[in-house]
Write a protein that binds this DNA or RNA. Structure first.
Length: 960
RNA sequence: GCCGAAGUGGCGGAAUUGGUAGACGCGCUGGACUCAAAAUCCAGUGGUAGCAAUAUCGUGUGGGUUCGAUUCCCACCUUCGGUACCA
């Protein structure tokens, strides 16, 4: 008992952590400035949204990894930029404000304070002097400024970059848009004369079709419950990702960003960046490039031409009908009188359907317009239908349907009894699906007999020569909706005149600050809460302000640039800072941002690059996705039907798999559950009582077990109530407030210390792998740190380190450890780096060695992993300054050279023994010795040796 | 459906170029210290047979290439992540 106490005092991590945290702040240990004598290295974490729930043990996984890596880089001589900040605009703070009346700015400030405290408890080496917050006016001034530049530019396809809109206006005045090749939604051609005749509002509309930030009417994801428009990636399965509310399509005037202009560059430039293949392929899918043919079909009894897009021009002889999207502009005109009623009914049905209904029930639906199109290749008339399976915002919103070679078209044709013409013979390719571009054309006039790829070319040539279409590349990527009807986001630097023409506010009026308000609900007509503030909206004579705010990804699309020069008031970052820090060398964060944030950031960065405002074309050189630390979710089965008004909970083993629908799963606070996270997790009497206390509504619920019933504190059944076991259902899933399974890192740090927590999270497995949190192995790391400490100081607080000269074995061990740890850090294989250090401690303990010449380099080696313990030992060794600014140990080959080599001896590839040979032994010498070995002789017997293989340094194999 | 990642002891995981499968840790078993417990230390720990030496099986399944395969190739199964009426 007494001994134990003294030992604990020797490693009082709470005291050590407090001391060095203060020391680092006082000495600005992690502050970094431009230093042109040193090479820069930029390590970045995806900054968090400061939610009210605080950090859980899942967040730090990436932070710890980047912390170790940045400390290592600093110790190898780099000038390391490793900042942190907060993505502090967002919906939760606003919803919290609606519920509580607490201003988002205030709750956000509180949450950030809590986050910073939690982060500092982990010993992360951020340079807090560079902190950015996206909701800070000094920051969002520049978000607005970049938006202004997007508004003022269009994308010139010939030059392949963004060009000022003023150049375009000049061009329009001279030649109209006849020679313009730009990324645009403008479909009309006009001459200079036409342009000059246009009214201001018309000119404004035309320019909007070119600007990179523009306004358009579009169908947006409208969420009634949240009172806001959501981005496509904020909607999952037709319901809002946050809150799970239904989402419908609604027409609204919205700001958008023309990210599609950059689609090709976003796709191609991925080749030169060091991202994982899976991440690249996710981005590639999202961009969704396809090559095909855009062409026009004539319409019988009409001058209109129907534009379609297809990736399968070869199938043109198999077209038996056309399909328009319900939102297609031709719908009204093409509907003949007798079909009018039915079509209107269908449009009503399709447009008002929520996204969830559209995707969940895959019913085939559609309606005939009564009009016919003419196949330009064979002159056949084909009916034009309307169906919701054709989407307005992909391609042209109209398709030529080929039921023989498209699954959806076929299902549609079968449902409505439309003809199907087989046009491709796939008998040569039995494995091919209808999607594969394989086969030989049949029933196809002049392309009959051609292979599919050949036929595609032939039809494209034909269509192009007829002047009714051309080869075209299409993308799934859509322009990004950039308007939100919210309060807690960046206001737009935009005002409108009476005609509704948008003007930019000049730079010296930025930032446009959020006006203080007390009411945060959106208006009933769906406008942003800002619209309530009439004084603010109309405070410029003759103009009114934009009341929408920008979405979450606005501030996060460029924050990594602001870290380079966070206090600059003249520019978003100085040329000098940008030239020095360049780009992010190493970026770490979760896969959930694989498409959203990373795509938008790349887009903004490329735009800034076009304007010559940043020196690099891509923002993030190397990117790693850390895995998620999942939580354990414990559920109780509750019968959906009450019995006599009483809730019935049923122990898991009594729940029949076939009757699971009759039960609701109620999550329970995991701390009440014994053996949580296993198949045998259960509540005992104490756990049930805690649950009853915690959830008042279940105070009198009945708990049914195999051997009895427990209700209102009374047990009725066999055996004693102390042995009650109510089995729970254990699942692995997200750590979240609603599952009551959040593990706070502070609790773990309090119990074991920050260094142990850090190393344990890294020791769990490869950084990119997801895994459930459990503390089973944490004692192993805790023991390791104590054993490591014990090399320097014994249990009684006696200092053990000696000045003796190390011997060859000790040096060999040290340098082998240095070599492996260094390699592992470079590969981000922190779990094996830690196990290597464990091996070191085990081995050196066996040697009973405490020599400074070995133990001092070890302090430096462990410093990135266990910064507190390392700093403490460094100073106890009599050093000054911070160990984190020391040179990282470098291994020397000469110490690890072995004089002998151990070879496994194999017969026919199977290991039969191990032999040690002189490192300089020749192959012949080895062969000679091996042949004489007893067990080798035994295995060979009298069979002839067919082959002897010696891989130097690896193994010996004899083939008989 | 499509795209991507992964399947190794009771558990987390290791094996970086095809060359000793299971490093390291947890757990478990036995022992030392102790009146006892905790802590700590020592030893053992993939399965099967055997007192043992040893043999044999073994990296999701089935095939293949190779002197030799967790690693490469083909087919399949399972799990996880992403994504989808994308013409």
């Amino acid at each position: 008992m007494k001994k134990n106490k003294i030992y604990k005092m020797a490693l009082d991590f709470a005291k050590i952590e407090k001391y060095w945290k203060d020391f680092w702040i006082e000495n600005k240990t992690y502050k970094v400035d431009i230093d042109k004598d040193k090479e820069k290295y930029y390590v970045l974490d995806m900054f968090p949204y400061p939610s009210g729930a605080g950090l859980h043990v899942g967040h730090p996984l990436g932070y710890i990894a980047s912390d170790i890596f940045s400390r290592y880089k600093r110790m190898t001589g780099f000038n390391v930029l490793h900042p942190m900040g907060f993505d502090s605009f967002g919906l939760p703070a606003e919803q919290y404000a609606i519920q509580t009346g607490i201003h988002p700015a205030e709750s956000t400030r509180e949450n950030i304070k809590m986050y910073k405290k939690q982060l500092s408890n982990l010993g992360l080496n951020y340079d807090w002097s560079r902190e950015v917050q996206t909701s800070d006016p000094d920051y969002y001034k520049w978000t607005q400024w970049i938006f202004s530049r997007l508004f003022e530019h269009y994308y010139d396809i010939n030059e392949n970059r963004a060009v000022p809109i003023d150049n375009l206006i000049e061009e329009f005045e001279k030649y109209g848009n006849l020679n313009v090749n730009a990324a645009t939604a403008e479909t009309k051609s006009f001459t200079a004369e036409d342009w000059k005749k246009m009214k201001d509002t018309e000119k404004n509309d035309v320019l909007m079709n070119y600007r990179l930030a523009y306004r358009k009417v579009g169908y947006v994801n409208w969420c009634e419950a949240l009172g806001t428009v959501l981005a496509n990636d904020e909607v999952k399965d037709g319901i809002s990702e946050r809150g799970g509310h239904p989402v419908v399509k609604k027409p609204m005037n919205q700001w958008s960003l023309r990210i599609t202009a950059y689609a090709e560059r976003l796709l191609n430039d991925m080749e030169n960046i060091d991202w994982s293949d899976s991440l690249k392929s996710m981005q590639r899918n999202w961009i969704g490039r396809s090559e095909g043919l855009q062409m026009f079909f004539d319409i019988a009894q009409s001058d209109k031409k129907l534009e379609i897009y297809t990736t399968r021009p070869d199938t043109i002889f198999g077209v038996t009908f056309m399909v328009l999207s319900p939102e297609h502009p031709f719908v009204e005109e093409l509907t003949v009188a007798e079909n009018k009623k039915e079509v209107e009914k269908y449009i009503e049905y399709a447009v008002n359907k929520t996204e969830i209904e559209r995707t969940s029930e895959k019913k085939i639906s559609g309606v005939f317009t009564g009009s016919y199109a003419v196949n330009p290749i064979n002159g056949k008339q084909i009916p034009i239908w309307i169906s919701e399976y054709v989407l307005m915002d992909y391609g042209t919103g109209a398709i030529m349907a080929v039921p023989s070679d498209d699954d959806r078209d076929r299902a549609f044709a079968q449902h409505f009894n439309l003809p199907i013409i087989n046009i491709i013979d796939k008998s040569k390719y039995p494995e091919a699906t209808s999607k594969d571009k394989l086969g030989v054309m049949i029933n196809s006039d002049f392309i009959t007999g051609m292979e599919v790829p050949e036929a595609i070319e032939a039809i494209i040539n034909k269509v192009e020569s007829m002047g009714i279409g051309k080869k075209q590349v299409n993308y799934k990527l859509r322009d990004a909706n950039f308007s939100r009807q919210r309060y807690w986001g960046e206001p737009f630097p935009i005002i409108y005149d009476e005609q509704g023409i948008a003007y930019l506010l000049p730079e010296d009026e930025l930032p446009v600050e959020l006006p203080p308000m007390t009411e945060f609900k959106p208006t009933v007509d769906g406008k942003s809460p800002l619209a309530r503030n009439k004084n603010w909206v109309n405070d410029i004579d003759g103009f009114y302000r934009e009341t929408d705010t920008m979405p979450g990804f606005a501030g996060s699309s460029w924050y990594f640039l602001r870290y380079m020069d966070p206090q600059n008031e003249e520019v978003f970052a100085s040329k000098e800072a940008l030239e020095y820090w360049q780009d992010v060398d190493f970026y770490i964060g979760g896969t959930e941002h694989a498409v959203g944030h990373l795509m938008y950031s790349r887009f903004w960065h490329k735009f800034l690059f076009d304007l010559n405002l940043v020196p690099t074309n891509e923002p993030f050189k190397r990117l790693v996705n850390q895995g998620m630390i999942q939580g354990v979710i414990e559920f109780l089965y509750l019968k959906k039907e009450k019995e006599n008004g009483v809730n019935i909970f049923v122990s898991k083993e009594l729940v029949d798999d076939n009757k699971q629908d009759e039960y609701a799963k109620i999550p329970v606070y995991i701390k009440f559950v014994k053996d949580y996270g296993t198949d045998n997790s259960y509540l005992d009497k104490d756990g049930i009582d805690k649950f009853r206390e915690w959830r008042e509504e279940y105070k009198n619920a009945k708990f049914v077990f195999q051997n009895g019933v427990y209700q209102s504190g009374e047990f009725d059944g066999e055996g004693s109530e102390e042995n009650m076991r109510f089995t729970t259902l254990s699942e692995v899933g997200k750590m979240s407030k609603r599952y009551h399974n959040v593990v706070n890192p502070d609790d773990v740090v309090d119990e074991y210390g920050a260094d142990v927590f850090r190393m344990y999270e890294m020791f769990l497995g490869p950084i990119e792998q997801s895994k459930p949190w459990d503390t089973k192995g944490i004692d192993g790391i805790s023991k390791f740190i104590k054993r490591y400490w014990g090399l320097y100081e014994d249990r009684d607080g006696k200092w053990l380190v000696t000045e003796d000269k190390p011997n060859a074995d000790e040096l060999k061990l040290l340098h082998k450890t240095i070599k492996k740890v260094t390699e592992d850090i470079n590969n981000l294989s922190f779990n094996t780096a830690i196990s290597t250090m464990m091996v070191f401690v085990n081995e050196i303990k066996k040697m009973d060695s405490h020599k400074k010449a070995v133990l001092e380099p070890m302090v430096k080696l462990i410093a990135p992993f266990a910064p507190f313990v390392a700093e403490e030992l460094w100073h106890r060794l009599g050093m000054s300054g911070s160990v984190h600014h020391e040179q990282y140990p470098v291994f020397e080959e000469k110490y690890i050279k072995e004089s002998t080599v151990k070879y496994p001896i194999c017969i026919n590839g199977k290991k039969r023994g191990i032999e040690e040979f002189d490192a300089n032994a020749t192959q012949d010498e080895i062969k000679k010795i091996v042949r004489e070995l007893d067990y080798v002789k035994k295995w060979i017997g009298d069979k002839p040796i067919r082959k002897e293989i010696i891989v130097p340094g690896r193994m010996v194999n004899i083939v008989i």
